[in-house]
Amino acid sequence: MHLDLGIVASYWLVLLKGLGLTIAFTSGCAVLGSLLGFCLSLLRLSPSRWIKAPTWLYVELFRGTPLLIQLFWIFFCFPVVFRLPIPPYLSVIISLTLYMTAITSETFRGALKSISGEQHDACIALSLSPQAKILHVIFPQALLRAIPPLLSNIISLFKESALISSVGVADLMYVGQSISNSTARPLEFLTTVGIIYFLVAFPLTRLVGLVETRFLRRFAY
């Protein structure tokens, strides 16, 4: 067998369609997981053990187990345990969002703890309500400081999303595997899929460094 990437040209539209679905899942779950992760990080800083304990358990459970196991459990086990069938697309959204929530909550928790006590004292002096304090003072500063690790989390989620092909969702990895099986050319198509993942992820990794060096050092601290 010899490498012939020319055969890939006739399947570009199908591969791009799979890439579009991968990006859609990644971006949607990243946004939703980041918002939920911020809320979870606030709960993890609560003085109440009854709140901190379950949130700590949730974060450690989803950070400490493989995403593939989480995906399989939601897709295969959840319908059996709760007698509620879940379509593949919905199981992917749930699993990716829960995973993203867990890892971003730690990102935001570190960002929140880095905010100086003077900021909280100023909110008290201005008689700001807890909602106004979080929305107008704490959240903007935490978001700025969390941007680099958040972008890194999104890149990781984009690469981890290749696992959703295991439940039959026609993402980029699923399409690449299907074409390679039907054409008996796995070398060409799996190589192409890897190149596509790299072409999307590499500019984002460079963006992380650019944002951190040219923007955040000026405004976040």
Rank of each mutant, 00 (worst) to 15 (best):
G209W: 04
L128I: 03
A201N: 04
F78R: 10
S91E: 10
T205A: 00
G33C: 01
V81K: 14
V175T: 09
M1I: 07
I124E: 15
R109D: 06
V175N: 11
H2Q: 15
L3K: 08
Q177H: 08
A146N: 14
L19Q: 15
T55F: 14
I103L: 14
N153A: 01
T205G: 02
T191H: 00
F219R: 14
G64E: 11
V92L: 03
L42V: 10
W12S: 15
L216A: 03
L150A: 00
A170S: 08
N181F: 04
I7R: 10
I124M: 14
T192Q: 07
Y11D: 15
P149I: 00
I147E: 12
P148C: 03
L43R: 15
V14C: 02
N153V: 03
A24W: 14
T104G: 06
A24P: 09
S48M: 13
I93W: 13
C29V: 04
Y197L: 02
I51P: 11
A9S: 15
A184W: 11
L216Y: 03
L5Q: 13
S95I: 04
I93E: 04
F198P: 09
L84W: 14
P85L: 02
C29W: 02
L90A: 12
I94E: 12
L216K: 02
S95A: 11
P54E: 01
L207R: 08
L67H: 00
I134P: 11
F158N: 05
T213D: 10
F215I: 15
V193Y: 04
S127C: 14
A24C: 10
V14G: 05
W50T: 09
I179V: 11
S178P: 01
L199Q: 01
L45G: 15
L40D: 06
A102L: 01
N153R: 06
R109F: 01
F82K: 09
